[in-house]
Nucleic acid binder design. Sequence first.
DNA 1: ACATTTCATCGTACTTTTACGATAGAGATA
DNA 2: TATCTCTATCGTAAAAGTACGATGAAATGT
Lengths: 92, 92
Amino acid sequence: MGNVKTDELSKKFKALSHPARLEILELLKDNACICGDIVDVLPLAQATVSQHLKVLKEAGFIFGEESGTKVCYMLNRKALDDFKKEVQLLKI
Amino acid sequence: MGNVKTDELSKKFKALSHPARLEILELLKDNACICGDIVDVLPLAQATVSQHLKVLKEAGFIFGEESGTKVCYMLNRKALDDFKKEVQLLKI
DNA sequence: ACATTTCATCGTACTTTTACGATAGAGATA
DNA sequence: TATCTCTATCGTAAAAGTACGATGAAATGT
């Protein structure tokens, strides 16, 4: 809508607006996981999980470290804490 | 995804995932507004604003009180505070 | 009574999201 | 080298979201 603040915040909310993505974050909270681990747990195809990971990555909530053919995903703790703080300070 | 907790939370995030809806909440933070007030402020048609209000209402973040032909919308303070708390306590 | 104001809803067009199978590339393994 | 594993991406189909004008219903004003 032109307002930078609400534009950016709404994008973060959007990244969190799918249950699969929240569950991915919960999985990553305890252990870093490779993509395949997540595919094993969620009732979704590999391509779909990969898509969700991309959304979370682009929102800055996770990042992936390549090692061999695998990619190890982990939470971006600071981004999540910043988000929580932002919600807390939200002027609504 | 079957998990009640993440399903419900993701719905709340989705309701907040559009900048216009965040701006509506900001408007309502200071004063309760009739729909027309919001239409005057946002660069959106009346039908579109009405649609956004419906989304926020169904998510429980606002409610509307009819008086005559007008509908006065206001924040659901408790729902917003609960949401903030839920984000705070989120186990990620 | 008639016109006006206010808002929700309908119908519609367009875009985005979600999901999948298939495929390709990059690295490991035999 | 050939094969296998792992994951991103492509292509695609279906569903959901976003936006608008038009319309309708209900209360108010003339």
